[in-house]
């Protein structure tokens, strides 16, 4: 499943790497991205194209929203049916 997320984050130290790190750590692959810094507003607009296997982009969106430096996040692609994890593969 491919998705596009559009985010507006504060222009502070570590904000971009924190955002991208979270996306990859939660199991999503970034296939394209565009970032634009607005110095006057002290913010950065980031658009990211993602590919994911069985993870929910809604959950990812809420995880991104929790980041302290994130002002807004919007998923520009259609939502998907709820993902049911089929089995526990934890050790």
């Amino acid at each position: 499943m491919n998705h596009t997320l559009q985010m507006n984050i504060q222009k502070v130290e570590g904000a971009i790497i924190r955002l991208l790190g979270l996306i990859e750590r939660r199991g999503f692959c970034v296939t394209a991205m565009n970032a634009h810094s607005d110095d006057a507003a002290q913010q950065v607009q980031i658009t990211v194209d993602l590919h994911c296997g069985s993870r929910s982009v809604e959950t990812l969106t809420r995880q991104i929203e929790k980041l302290y430096d994130v002002r807004s996040v919007a998923c520009l692609t259609a939502s998907e049916p709820a993902v049911v994890m089929k089995e526990s593969v934890a050790c």
């Binding site: 929910s56 929203e65 929790k66 089995e87 526990s88």
Partner: peptide, 23 residues
């Protein structure tokens, strides 16, 4: 095993963290 957990139950989930609900 998650798909065998409480297989007959519906779920009410209360949490302070929105990203946990439905995760």
């Amino acid at each position: 095993r998650l798909d065998g957990f409480a297989p007959k139950a519906r779920v009410v989930h209360m949490d302070a963290d929105a990203s946990e609900i439905g995760k």
